[in-house]
Design a protein around this nucleic acid. Structure first.
Lengths: 150, 150
DNA sequence: TATGAAAGGGACATCTT
DNA sequence: AAGATGTCCCTTTCATA
């Protein structure tokens, strides 16, 4: 993992369809070392996946909600069951165990307030171990990047 | 935007390096319609970017923190200034205007607790319009996907 | 670990139904 | 809107320094 590897990762995080040829020219190398370094980085696990990021608004999935949750029963088995149930919900895109006033933080995405309400009433309400929920509805997304600064 | 387009977007969100040939075989089509549909989806803005997702732990960027913020002065100019300052911080990967007890929610990434402390002491403290901060440190990432279910 | 050349396959354009 | 065909360029590999 030298500075060339870092610059390759930087580029791939911005545009993973950039050709090895273009990268080679940017980094003053030929295609072979670029190609081999990328393969090495993939095998070492640095690159997890190559994905397309979509426009949620155009797809009618504009409602984003963060849910702060506390659980009643912290015992291992109940806890695992709770995590499994939360992870299985398709609306939830991110789920974290956190420090602070709440135990868990979830990010969820919906196409309408009705869908969000149904999620609360049907999906979440059926999970028994929740003691408290505080929702933060996203009014505006001001910054979003998947890029990790190395 | 028919069901074939949806399945193409589904595939691209999982693996955007999949060849048109492979997708054609999965969707019982030939490469031409796949290729043309993808180009159409790109031009229409459904696909924003193609990116590589990296392993933060392997890169030594394991500390993730959510910051809940309230601002003192909500007037337009002060507010814009605040947003601009927050967006400019490289540690902050996501930033939202939210409803609820706090005004804003930021997701930030650090390589160490020291780096996080320096961020609070240097970067955040220099932003004058903040009245309250509550940090939620991520103890475990249980689910993370960029995928939007269509 | 890099360069350069060579083979194989996919992207992309065009034509056809 | 989808199928078929052909060209070009990139990916991938190999020999070599």
């Amino acid at each position: 993992m030298d500075s060339i590897d870092q610059r390759i990762l930087e580029i791939l995080q911005t545009d993973c369809l950039k050709t090895a040829k273009e990268m080679a020219s940017e980094l003053s190398l030929t295609t072979t070392p670029i190609y081999e370094r990328i393969k090495k980085l993939e095998k070492a696990g640095y690159i997890k996946e190559y994905v397309a990021l979509l426009d949620a608004d155009l797809l009618g999935k504009s409602i984003v909600v963060f849910l702060n949750l506390t659980v009643k029963d912290h015992h291992a088995s109940k806890r695992k069951e709770f995590i499994k149930q939360m992870e299985s919900l398709d609306s939830i895109t991110e789920f974290y165990h956190i420090s602070g006033s709440y135990d868990f933080l979830a990010k969820a995405r919906f196409s309408s307030i009705k869908e969000y309400r149904d999620f609360l009433v049907n999906d979440v309400a059926s999970i028994s171990n929740i003691s408290d929920i505080e929702s933060q509805i996203v009014l505006e997304e001001l910054k979003y990047t998947t890029k990790i600064i190395i």
